Amino acid sequence: MAFLVCRGGWYATELLPYIKMGVDCSKRKGDFWITGSQVFRLMKNVSESLAGRVGIVNLLGLSDAEIYQEPSEPYQTDAARLMNRLSVRSRKGLNEIYYRIFKGSMPELYADENVDWETYYRSYVDTYLQRDIRDLAQVADEMQFYNFMTIVAAQTSKPVVYEELASAAGISAPTAKKWLSILASSHIIALVQPYHNNALKRVVKMPLIHFLDTGLAAYLLKWGNPEALEKGAMSGAFFESYVFSEIYKNYLNAGKEPPIYYYRDKDQKEIDLLIYQNGILSPIEIKKSASPGKTAIKNFNVLEPVTREETFGGLGALKVEIGTGSVVGMANDLLPVDEKNWYVPVWLI
Rank of each mutant, 00 (worst) to 15 (best):
V320T: 13
E304P: 00
E285L: 05
K319M: 08
P283R: 05
V327Y: 05
D338W: 04
G279S: 03
T307I: 03
N332W: 12
P305K: 08
N301I: 14
P283T: 06
A290I: 01
L334Y: 12
G323Y: 02
I284S: 09
L334S: 04
L335V: 15
S289G: 05
T307P: 06
G325C: 06
S282V: 08
G325T: 00
T324D: 01
E309D: 10
P292Y: 05
I280L: 08
I280V: 13
T311N: 04
N299G: 08
D338N: 13
I286Q: 03
G316I: 02
G279F: 00
G323H: 04
L303D: 04
E321S: 06
K294H: 09
Q277P: 04
T324Q: 15
E310W: 11
N278D: 14
T295C: 01
T324S: 13
S289F: 04
G293E: 11
V320C: 06
N299V: 11
K288F: 04
S282C: 01
V302R: 07
A331T: 11
I297C: 05
N332K: 14
I297K: 08
M330Q: 08
A331G: 13
G313W: 01
F300H: 09
N301Y: 15
Q277N: 15
D338I: 10
I297P: 02
I284T: 10
S282W: 00
A317K: 13
N332L: 10
N299H: 15
L318K: 01
S289A: 14
L281S: 02
N278L: 05
N332V: 11
F300P: 00
I322G: 05
A317Y: 15
S289P: 02
D333C: 04
I286H: 07
G329Q: 13
V328N: 07
G293Q: 11
S291E: 14
T295N: 11
G329I: 08
A331W: 04
V327M: 02
S326M: 12
V328E: 13
K319V: 04
T311I: 01
E321P: 03
A331F: 07
M330W: 08
K298A: 15
I297T: 14
G314P: 08
I280H: 07
I284M: 06
E310C: 14
T324L: 11
